[in-house]
Computed example of a mutant assay.
Amino acid sequence: MILVKGTREQAMALWDEVGQVLAHLGLRLSVEKTRVCRLDEGFDFLGFRIQRRRRKGTTTWTVYTYPSKKALLSVMGKVRALTNRVKQASLERLLRQLNPILRGWCAYFRHGVSKATFGYLDMFAWRRVTAWLRKRHPRTNWEQLYRKFLAGRPGNRPLENGIVMFDAATLEVTRYR
């Protein structure tokens, strides 16, 4: 529950009221996970970071929701685990496993301020896949790998047998549905 305007004492009283309501349902507030904070400090909720910041170029303050650092590190860890050299037999198999992870993560976070995060994740995944290609083909130089797997596609997306790497940077973001 979020109290946007009020004192700390009012927030603590609301905490007690919420605890009473949840007790009737057989639930309880976790003391370790629940805290009272200012909106300027921000907090993480369901993978999103919610924080009030000054809007760029203005003097107005706005509440932003964007992917939390923990959520981003989680998906980056999954990409890192998939792009280990010994785990995948072919680029097609790698892309078949990687694309649903990237697509699902981006679909979940597309309703926040996520465009820059998507660009960062896309760059990270692209670099991991191209590094994986270079390790898989040690006797082939970069120019030949580029021509075979990357050239001639929008954004130089890796492709094999009709499977193209998902482009997270081009996903449309719809903020505050």
Rank of each mutant, 00 (worst) to 15 (best):
M1C: 12
I2M: 02
I2Q: 11
K5Y: 09
G6Q: 04
G6N: 03
T7D: 01
A11V: 04
A11S: 10
L14M: 11
L14V: 11
L14E: 03
W15Q: 12
D16A: 10
V18A: 14
V21C: 06
V21D: 05
L22S: 01
A23T: 11
H24L: 14
H24Y: 10
R28F: 07
E32V: 14
R35L: 15
R38Q: 14
R38D: 14
L39I: 15
D40Y: 13
D40V: 12
F43A: 01
F43G: 00
G47V: 01
F48N: 04
F48M: 06
R49P: 02
I50T: 02
R53D: 08
R54G: 10
R55W: 00
T60N: 14
W61F: 13
W61D: 09
T62A: 06
V63Q: 08
Y66P: 10
P67I: 07
S68A: 15
S68R: 11
K69G: 13
A71N: 08
G77N: 04
V79C: 07
R80T: 11
R80E: 11
A81S: 15
N84T: 12
R85M: 09
R85G: 10
R85C: 12
V86F: 10
L95D: 04
Q97V: 07
L98H: 00
N99E: 10
P100Q: 03
I101Y: 04
R103E: 14
W105N: 02
Y108C: 02
F109G: 05
G112L: 04
V113D: 05
S114K: 03
F118C: 08
D122N: 14
M123L: 14
F124L: 09
F124E: 06
A125D: 01
A125Y: 01
A125V: 07
W126Q: 10
W126T: 12
W126D: 08
R128T: 05
A131P: 00
K135T: 12
P138C: 03
P138E: 01
R139W: 13
R139N: 09
Q144H: 11
L145A: 06
L145T: 07
K148H: 04
L150W: 03
G155I: 06
G155W: 00
P158S: 04
P158W: 03
E160S: 08
N161D: 15
G162Y: 00
I163H: 05
V164D: 00
M165Q: 06
F166K: 01
T170C: 04
V173R: 04
V173E: 02
Y176I: 07
